[in-house]
Design a protein around this nucleic acid. Structure first.
Lengths: 207, 207, 207, 207
DNA sequence: CAATAATCGAGACGGTACGTCACGTCTTCTT
DNA sequence: AAGAAGACGTGACGTACCGTCTCGATTATTG
């Protein structure tokens, strides 16, 4: 068999896409987002900063939102994985603590910009949700289920309810109050929500 | 007593601000926001619709966000007042239900736009917070304190923690999930958080 | 020889300037100037009339004056060339007569506007001088020199002095008196100045 | 007779016009004209500089041109009077020399601005002509007529022709060449024109 | 090894809206 | 009645980006 690879794809004729241009664009997008808000970020500036023609950007990304999500998700590391300490409270509060560290760092401005920009751009918020929030949510489900197995949480607990009230509180302080994201707050909110999950599920069962 | 009025204010010199222009601008802002998204809303169009000079808009509002906050908060009626039913749970869940109705209506897009724009504009998020969120927060304190007096909530409850996790969950679904703002959710989240407040405060006391 | 052309000019990168836009702008400038005064002429109107973006105008002309000089000088035909009749007096008075005809026509308003605007804008008066006045001055030198060769003028005549007093008189009546630009005046001023040149140079020599 | 004064004028009721405001406006106009060109001079700035309401300016001067001429003519001293030395050449060249000194000074910019602005504003150039140029022209006639009486100039000399070619040359260098206004030039141009007047009138008589 | 084709950078194009400035008019209170 | 103060509707300013386009140059595959 002469072919080198079974997954070999027929390359179209013509000059292939420049990988270095792609990377330069993503890098410039992130750099500029650190200093400028999402809405003040212009494709013109990105292309200029990346030494790239404007058309090259438009050739590969349909709009600003798609580009920014792409750039951001290429920058998120494994720092937000849930640990497995044997205690739901510990697992969740540790991860929440790492999230808060991220939000308080320079990259937090990018998260704010994405959520902010997404309120105007449906595709942007969807991309942010599916590529950033959803993966962590799936891990959180697993962590909570382990807690249920260990009887730390009741069997009928509404996982989304728990996670929305916990992370919702964090995002509320991050997006609106712009304050109060302390370690103590993390400890308190985890306790409040996990305790609530126990009591409220017990009541529901009793009904 | 010679003075006419103790609260009489000295008017500044010059032609006074036109109240009719102010109202026309706010009215046009809301009208256009119904048809256009926040980011497609232009001051040029507002001024044109209101038959007003662009400079008159800029004289009184520093930017689009401030204008929209003003227009929006002038349109929020008493629909978000907390009732006084004699039960914390009822008071809070009724108000939360009204908030969700607002967020799900056309005016919800304005709220989203304000929070979104505020992620780029510190003054905008501050204005939104102080003029829309804070007043409701103050009422919420009062409602919760009545609950404490009635022994529905423990004396040492952290009111901000309770409210951030409750409303944070709502805003999380509103801003990021763009889904799940049902009546059942309201009931569940209120129960979860209020129950959590009881248990977690009891624990804290025990420590 | 590998190079195609010694005078070959390297075109700069990027899309080349649109010649049709350039012409449309100049045409619209002249058209609007016929109906409106110079100071009432707006770049906005020119761009609109030429179906051209305002930025395209500003990309190529720094200000209104420069644009109008360009438009004007592109409209000056060969009508102001000096003839060669064999007599200095005839050559000069014929050309002066053509100039006066131009100044009295609708295009005279453009000349007035350019000189007027140039009193505030150093670059404008320089452009007017170099592109309109200087070329004619150079021809005038040649005409006068032929007169010197034919002994119609003395060898030591100060050409600039002669031309400034001749054309200065015309511009004085044009710009300040706004009157008196008759054919008789042309004949008289040419005679006065050319006679003066003869006598005064003779005296100078005698000294 | 009860009246105090035959020239007594019935004063209109109400607050009389403020002389200090009038002076402040004229002073500010001249000051700003030194730094800014005529077309960049704004009534807004004048009123601000003079601590005067804008309406006060508009109440007394119909437009910018009228105000500027007023301000300028209130500042011209007796420096441009023709002397009486007993020689036309001396009288004229001395006065021309003073004029050139004025044009080369800071006030020259105002003269340029007035002539420049007048090319767009008919009332302005008329006011400049009648209040600045014409008075000097009348004196110049007198000076030249004394020269005719002394036989320095022929009886049939065309005074306007002489003066336009002399002062026209000066204004040509001032307005267009922006150069060459030397003392030597003054001497030369006076000689050229006065000599021309003699010869050309003699010829005309001979015809 | 030429021809073909899609990419690249650069930057001009027709547009839209920006936020500022001055216009000349007006409305208020004070002198 | 005139003063200063300054807001008003109007309209042009010059700038910044939009998303599209036209260039010459570059880099690959195909004939």
């Amino acid at each position: 068999m002469p072919g080198k690879d079974s997954a070999r794809e027929k390359r179209p004729p013509g000059r292939p896409r420049s990988e270095s241009a792609r990377r330069a664009i993503l890098r410039s997008t992130l750099r500029l987002l650190r200093h400028t808000g999402y809405s003040d970020l212009s494709i013109e500036a990105i292309a200029g900063d990346a030494n790239v023609g404007k058309a090259t950007v438009y050739r590969w990304w349909p709009n600003k939102g798609a580009l920014v999500v792409d750039a951001f998700s290429s920058s998120v590391h494994k720092e937000l994985l849930f640990p497995d300490t044997g205690s739901v409270y510990s697992d969740v509060s540790l991860q929440a603590s790492h999230l808060v560290q991220l939000l308080r760092s320079r990259r937090g401005q990018i998260v704010a910009a994405l959520i902010g920009g997404g309120q105007t751009d449906a595709e942007l918020i969807e991309a942010f949700r599916e590529r950033f929030v959803r993966p962590r949510r799936l891990e959180a489900y697993a962590t909570l289920r382990k807690g249920i197995e260990r009887r730390e949480l009741p069997a009928g607990a509404d996982l989304d309810l728990i996670l929305d009230s916990l992370y919702g509180a964090i995002y509320m302080r991050f997006l609106i109050w712009k304050d109060g994201l302390t370690e103590e707050f993390i400890a308190d909110i985890c306790r409040l929500v996990l305790d609530g999950a126990c009591t409220s599920a017990a009541e529901a069962e009793a009904r």
